[in-house]
Design a binder for these strands. Structure first.
Lengths: 202, 202
DNA sequence: CCTACTTTTTGAACACGTTCAACAGGAGTC
DNA sequence: GACTCCTGTTGAACGTGTTCAAAAAGTAGG
């Protein structure tokens, strides 16, 4: 981890890691299937940190927008130290066959845990949406989160100011859209969305 | 290109390419800055094919949903032959610092051309949206397209059946949402969205 | 034709991720 | 103790992308 942070992902060599750990190169490969697999520890570590930070953000308010923004902003804070080499990290996650992909079966545990956070955002809030949409919302919010992660990866502003601004703007918007989903004229479109989601899942 | 299709991106070596081209390894690097830069030709090639296929799909109908689905489906058809190595392709494109990234300055030309297609989808259609949203719509549709590309990369169904189903479902939905944007209750949320987009651009 | 200069070509060399056959130690079994 | 497994450990070796100094080929001026 120290090497990754000081030299970046590509700058860190397996030989360097082995040296630093006081073992041979071969031994490093005995414990880790490859260089990519070293990041899985990092993945879980960040997941856990986000879980804790999110729980913190969720206490004290039932306003949906605040809860959502809190959770999204919590992730940005947790992830900030790793931003500079998150690009190469994301690069590996983008490959569909990679077990590191957020959509892969191998990371379904972490994914479910992350979705659970957003279920908690919703459950503890005052937001009322149309019933058909409700069960899909945690996963949709997680998808929004993934989109924000993508934005974050490309965000070169200092302190990830832009991503935080996005979270600050997007949370009330989702809140508003959720409430709108109950208005009759809008409900038709929401129903279409829901049946599209369900047909894709099948 | 032949090598990439038969062996995939990682399976194709610079030495193999040089041999196939009848030049030395060093010469390959004289003409291409690196392995990644070789894909830029492929990138442009597909872009061009999509442009032609999209133009085809846009003749004969002014119905927005049909036009949008046509353009989205056209991309799926054009990209189908390359699906199996598109994963490794996108892996390299996903890195923010990579010039192959769809968001990078280096590929702004291709990006603008792609956005222009969606502007054409909109301009030649009967869709009426709230004026504030209109100028942002081509770029938003392009973003939707990027999302669909992501879905496509992960789509393992034969003939990319699922991606086509998504396009078939999503196009009428966007149509409906666009029309809804003019309804007073909804317009407030749309205004929020627009100002969020504009604040992020600044 | 010779010379000076630029453009192109070459393959050796480098550092890397990864693999693998060989080896060392330990733990049980007789 | 001798034998058999199993668990770790090792560093050489392979193929890779990339670099680079040197050579070759081409070009212009005299």
């Amino acid at each position: 981890m120290r090497l990754f942070r000081s030299k970046g992902f590509d700058g860190t060599t397996m030989r360097g890691i082995a040296d630093e750990a006081g073992v041979s190169l071969g031994s490093a490969y005995y414990y880790f299937a490859g260089k990519e697999h070293l990041i899985q520890a990092f993945y879980g570590q960040m997941q856990e940190a986000h879980l804790a930070a999110a729980a913190q953000a969720l206490t004290g308010t039932t306003a949906f927008a605040d809860r959502l923004e809190g959770v999204l902003a919590a992730w940005v804070e947790v992830a900030e130290p790793y931003h500079e080499f998150a690009g190469t990290f994301f690069k590996n996650a983008a490959e569909p066959t990679s077990p590191l992909s957020p959509f892969s079966p191998e990371s379904s545990g972490a994914r479910e845990a992350s979705i659970a956070i957003f279920r908690e955002v919703l459950d503890g809030s005052d937001l009322k949406v149309t019933p058909a949409l409700r069960p899909h919302l945690p996963e949709l919010l997680w998808l929004l989160h993934m989109g924000m992660v993508l934005f974050w990866v490309y965000d070169a502003s200092d302190g990830r100011r832009r991503t935080l601004a996005l979270a600050h703007g997007v949370a009330p918007l989702v809140d508003k859209l959720g409430r709108l989903s109950r208005v009759p004229v809008v409900r038709g479109a929401v129903t279409d969305l829901v049946s599209l989601l369900e047909s894709l899942r099948a």
